[in-house]
């Protein structure tokens, strides 16, 4: 199935390439559990393009993060591969006018979930991974120690287990067959709900212990397609100096909560911040809480309708009592 989808993708990209400045997709990474982004400009690179459950990265950030990818020839488009979650980032970026819909050729790929390599390593300590594939509900990995069969549910990224939009919400061509969500809509905030049930002191202790590990490497911020201040982020500006360089919990707390607050009603829960964190901090959880509030109070879900205006991006002088 996956192999057929990759072949279909190659064919579609080959047909589209003359009209594209650059095609962004995934290629094999440092081992079979990892992939790396690839920027295709000539047909000879197309065979490197892959689609698999290891294509975890959201590639849409490359459209906006410096140096943002822009077509050298303004009559050409940028091609990009998106999963369901990634396509919602495109919607948010279109809403906020960071990108223009007609400058993009979107290759939408229905996704049955991506594998979190750290979860795999927790199940079985792999060394020299040779191959990895998903068959039905199993992950099959070959490494120096032989063949390992793992339950797919145990190694899928947390965001995939609670994904309500496995099919792209915006696309030009669809690669593969649409699929169904693994979760009921009423359950998507179950991780937030579980945390909210705990007493305040425990919640505080939870976040203090989680955030204490933060190294301030800013991978969460840099991987986020919607965290667009980038080089002018208040975490690093020295004038004005909002945060010291101390490694105390207050500094880390402030950075992460500013990051989360700036994404209120904008975050599409693509999970990049959590995926890239080398310290395994569940940073998306903060944004899920804010999204839950947005949904309950304002009935808004980010990244679904390119023509909608996110509530916190509106300004109405007649509003009172907010």
């Amino acid at each position: 199935m996956i192999e057929t989808d990759t072949m279909q993708l190659h064919k579609l990209v080959e047909e589209a390439l003359p009209e594209l400045d650059t095609m962004i997709g995934w290629a094999a990474g440092e081992d079979a559990l990892h992939t790396t982004p690839i920027f295709i400009r000539g047909a000879k690179s197309i065979p490197r393009l892959i689609w698999s459950p290891f294509c975890a990265q959201n590639l849409t950030g490359y459209l906006v993060k410096p140096p943002a990818l822009k077509p050298a020839d303004k009559h050409k488009q940028i091609g990009i591969c998106v999963k369901g979650c990634d396509s919602r980032s495109l919607v948010a970026l279109i809403q906020e006018k960071f990108i223009t819909r007609d400058r993009l050729r979107i290759f939408g790929i229905p996704c049955r979930g991506t594998v979190d390599w750290r979860k795999v390593m927790r199940q079985v300590r792999l060394s020299h991974v040779r191959s990895a594939k998903v068959e039905d509900n199993r992950l099959i990995v070959d490494d120096a120690g032989g063949t390992h069969k793992l339950n797919l549910e145990d190694v899928l990224a947390r965001k995939c287990l609670r994904c309500l939009y496995p099919n792209p919400v915006v696309y030009d061509v669809l690669v593969g067959e649409p699929t169904v969500s693994r979760i009921k809509p009423e359950d998507i905030y179950r991780d937030v709900d579980a945390l909210e049930k705990r007493p305040l002191e425990e919640r505080l202790a939870f976040w203090q212990s989680e955030l204490d590990r933060c190294m301030r490497c800013y991978a969460c911020r840099n991987a986020c397609p919607l965290c667009v201040c980038q080089e002018h982020c208040i975490a690093e500006t020295r004038d004005p100096k909002w945060l010291t360089l101390r490694m105390g919990i207050p500094e880390k707390f402030l950075f992460h909560f500013i990051h989360a607050m700036h994404l209120a009603g904008r975050c599409t829960e693509c999970g990049e911040c959590e995926r890239v964190c080398p310290m395994e901090i569940p940073v998306t959880l903060m944004k899920e809480k804010l999204n839950k509030i947005m949904e309950e109070m304002l009935g808004y879900v980010a990244g679904l309708d390119p023509t909608a205006i996110p509530p916190l991006l509106t300004f109405n002088p007649s509003e009172t009592g907010v």
Partner: peptide
């Protein structure tokens, strides 16, 4: 380097990276 996210992971996990900055707080 087209893929690079400009984050600090590689330098922070590196045993030989030693660049530092000095600030007065």
């Amino acid at each position: 380097t087209a893929q690079c996210l400009s984050c600090g992971i590689c330098t922070y996990v590196c045993p030989t990276c030693y660049c530092f900055t000095i600030t007065d707080e």
